[in-house]
């Protein structure tokens, strides 16, 4: 008897994506499938296009005046660059966590409640309280802040602020979370807590992580994509990429040789 293999469709499918900043070709014909329940790490030297590509996935590049995107990015088979797409709704489905923790200058509670409020996700104060508590719990921060929800988010430590930002991102129930070097400003303990959080979250979301830390990519991602000079050089299982990459350029980059 043979078992049929069920191929899960990708959550996000990028097909022939090009990004230009004016005359600069920042992302060059990148095609990449990203799956639910997986962490995908995007690695590569500075200026290789990985963050630019990441920002295409929820149209953050729309805010840059001379930025032009071509190709297709499908979220559940729907082109996110189609004219009828509501970008605010898109960013609710595809949340983002940035390199530097950027809590609003508001209370811890309001930082998390902000998104659900503007997206109308809570009918009552009790509903909102529930969303805030659950989001902070998922972000592993509840026990540390439950007695001071009215304190400013900016008073938390760097690592706590980053987990607050993750709580803020998941409060609006996204399907995809984009993370742009989320631990680069954190110490090893705070980094470990955020990585533990990413591991726990991966079951419910597609997580795409830009990182300069090879060890971080190796620790928490299931798939890894290596970018160089705007091109996707290699994409595969993380274990394979970090033990036996098929591209010499991937090998040279991850082993600390000049690419």
């Amino acid at each position: 008897m043979t078992m049929a293999t069920v191929q899960t469709p990708p959550k996000i499918s990028a097909q022939g994506v090009n990004v230009f900043y004016g005359d600069t070709h920042a992302v060059d014909n990148v095609s990449l499938d990203l799956y639910q329940d997986e962490v995908t790490a995007l690695i590569g030297p500075s200026g290789c296009g990985k963050s630019t590509f990441l920002r295409c996935l929820n149209r953050m590049n729309d805010t840059i005046a001379d930025c032009r995107v071509s190709g297709q990015i499908l979220l559940d088979d729907e082109d996110i660059y189609a004219s009828q797409i509501d970008v605010v709704q898109l960013r609710a489905r595809v949340g983002m966590v940035f390199q530097k923790p950027n809590p609003f200058p508001k209370s811890i509670y309001d930082n998390v409640a902000y998104g659900p409020r503007i997206h109308g996700l809570a009918d009552t104060r009790e509903d909102l309280d529930e969303i805030v508590a659950v989001s902070l719990e998922k972000a592993g921060l509840w026990d540390e802040v439950k007695d001071r929800l009215d304190h400013l988010g900016t008073t938390l430590s760097g690592g706590q602020q980053q987990r607050l930002c993750i709580a803020r991102a998941i409060a609006i129930d996204p399907e995809v979370i984009l993370m742009d070097e989320p631990c680069s400003a954190l110490d090893p303990i705070a980094t470990a807590k955020v990585e533990a959080l990413i591991e726990e979250l991966k079951g419910g979301y597609a997580i795409i992580l830009v990182t300069h830390s090879m060890q971080q990519a190796a620790r928490i991602s299931q798939k890894t994509a290596f970018f160089h000079l705007g091109q996707l050089i290699e994409f595969g299982d993380t274990t394979q990429i970090f033990t036996s990459p098929t591209s010499g350029r991937t090998r040279d980059y991850i082993t600390g040789r000049l690419v």
């Binding site: 090879m214 060890q215 190796a218 970090f242 033990t243 036996s244 990459p245 991937t250 090998r251 991850i254 082993t255």
Partner: peptide
């Protein structure tokens, strides 16, 4: 060194 790829092998 946290070796990877060829170095790890």
């Amino acid at each position: 060194r946290a070796p990877l790829a060829d170095d790890l092998r």
